[in-house]
Nucleic acid binder design. Structure first.
Lengths: 221, 221
DNA sequence: CGATTCCTTGAAGGTTGTCAACGTTGGTGG
DNA sequence: CCACCAACGTTGACAACCTTCAAGGAATCG
């Protein structure tokens, strides 16, 4: 079940097409904590953002985290009903295009349509993995998985080379992301630090023992 | 931000196109608990199925549940890497088409491409909602949310009219779906029954107090 | 009717949440 | 420069939620 070369070629063509649409938009700057208006597709160029799902209750969870280079808002474009919000986590620079216009144009070109579906599927994969993790793993496992996820994604984008990277989330936000409370996040972080597995302070993650961290993310023993 | 009529028209056109592709496939029958081969797109016509995400650990969680009428496997079509599996929960009848061939054909037709994106987004919405629920709600809240979700989806498909429906999941499977253990699922079910909110026995759900159930699903008080 | 799977219940213990307080940091204005 | 303020981080004690272990009952199927 290997991906055909023809498909891969079309995907890169589609990616190029989508990127080209963003070239025409002027870059925007936003401060940390700003809510991004719906109905638009964003290309995040610098900084982090997230999507949160809110219960009718009012309490909200962080449902996904976006890194520099990510495309955001493709999925909300066709579903105007639920007003799930996107928020910047840091100061960001990004470009925006109108979702519906862009989609109508993109979807007329098969490589772009395939690429859009690919991006949607990618986000779905992250959601599935996190659902499985939250269901199966305890606090330290989830934390390990999150730290590893960001680490590998940043490396793939070549934004990190060493074993240390910058994590702009506050501990409250980490809690909202993992379904845990701040207090407990803090305790687990301390235990991870004291075990010499990973260190997080001043928004700076240092992986001390990659092997043990990986083992944690997959349910310790 | 209302959805334009033109878009809606295209979506129904796309849906028709996709349905048409399935008409040419002969119906298949499978027993409960069978694993569905990847690389294909399925149209579930009768019975329930699910998708599970497995950790390298071996433990697996149920990540999404599919009801009669649902399209399955669209997202895994473009991502051959992670072999996440789909499994039937009951005996089913369904039609299958080859994922890659079908996608290459569908994506060349804009309405179909839009519809595919819409289906992908719909599944993503469910995942987001469940992530938020698992993060924010306790056991009874999650259970209430699940029971309500199936209830409303079945009603929308007009597979249920009264306040009672058939739930084929075993309690073990409900646990895997909600990230809880069987034992506790059982206790919470008993408490819900004794409170006169909802009754589940012999795979038959009876909603006794819809209002309180809804309030639970949204964090009690 | 045996055998398997599923459901059900009790008791004990661990993981996580809640409450409350204090330390730390960074920014703002006097 | 210092004082203040607000947001974030840190820690302890205790309670609640949920899991684990263990066992027995009910249902389904050969």
């Amino acid at each position: 079940m290997t991906q055909s070369v023809g498909l891969n070629r079309e995907l890169t063509l589609g990616q190029r097409k989508l990127r080209a649409k963003f070239e025409n938009a002027s870059p925007q700057f936003r401060k940390a904590g700003e809510l991004l208006p719906g109905g638009q597709i964003y290309h995040l160029q610098t900084g982090w953002a997230c999507q949160f799902g809110s219960l009718s209750n009012g309490s909200r969870a962080i449902v996904d985290v976006f890194l520099p280079g990510d495309m955001i808002g493709l999925d909300s474009a066709l579903h105007t009903e639920r007003p799930e919000g996107m928020v910047t986590l840091t100061a960001v620079t990004m470009r925006a295009i109108m979702a519906e216009d862009a989609l109508l144009d993109l979807m007329a070109y098969r490589p772009a349509a395939l690429y859009v579906a690919w991006v949607l599927g990618k986000r779905q994969q992250r959601a599935d993995l996190r659902l499985a993790a939250i269901s199966c793993l305890d606090a330290s496992g989830r934390l390990a998985m999150m730290l590893l996820d960001f680490y590998t994604r940043l490396r793939r984008k070549e934004l990190v080379t060493g074993s240390t990277y910058n994590l702009p989330l506050t501990q409250v936000q980490i809690g909202n992301y993992l379904g845990l409370t701040v207090v407990y996040i803090n305790r687990v972080l301390r235990s991870l630090r004291e075990s010499g597995i990973v260190n997080l302070e001043k928004h700076c993650v240092t992986i001390l023992d990659l092997e043990r961290l990986t083992r944690l993310a997959v349910t310790e023993e």
